[in-house]
């Protein structure tokens, strides 16, 4: 593994229970400090591949290495933005954004303070107490992607 590769995928294969082979011996490296994009038509398992890197799905065979460590589950150094935003429908924007910190046991004042700061940065302050169903797609996406940002450092 070269020094400037941060994510190394080694011969990853993913076969689903029904026998569908989604990934066949995929190997690739993602460079450090760069924005990498996975392109492909619908059904090209882009989301699934990223979930394998995130450690949310385990590959049938093969390995994923991040920062020189083998991935065997989700880790604090990897953040994940869900395609459907994964917002709690019964919680407002503030609680949704602070949810990662809530799971870590951060106190309410502290996590809300952090969340408010990040919400303000993307200009969604006036939506703090709105629920996901009241948001437009763009706002929902904003809150959905903020949630991971503030609780974990992004891959760097």
């Amino acid at each position: 593994m070269s020094a400037d590769t941060i994510v190394q995928i080694k011969e990853v294969r993913k076969i689903y229970d029904g026998g569908v082979e989604a990934l066949t011996d995929v190997s690739l490296g993602l460079p450090r400090g760069r924005l990498s994009t996975l392109l492909g038509p619908a059904g090209a398992v882009r989301q699934r591949s990223s979930k394998i890197i995130a450690g949310l799905i385990s590959p049938t065979s093969g390995e994923v290495w991040v920062k020189g460590k083998k991935v065997d589950g989700p880790g604090p150094e990897r953040a994940f933005v869900f395609q459907d935003f994964a917002l709690l429908p019964w919680a407002n924007v503030l609680r949704n954004v602070a949810f990662g910190l809530e799971l870590r046991g951060t106190s309410k004042e502290q996590r809300f303070e952090v969340a408010r700061k990040h919400i303000a940065e993307v200009g969604l302050s006036s939506f703090e107490s709105s629920y996901p169903h009241q948001l437009s797609g763009a706002c929902a996406k904003g809150s959905g992607s903020l949630a991971p940002w503030q609780s974990m450092p992004i891959l760097s």
Partner: peptide
């Protein structure tokens, strides 16, 4: 998706069930 979100944030199984 919500369960995976909880796992991505390193939530425990207990938190997953309760929250």
């Amino acid at each position: 998706s919500l369960i995976q979100m909880c796992r991505a944030f390193l939530g425990t199984r207990r938190q997953e069930v309760i929250k």
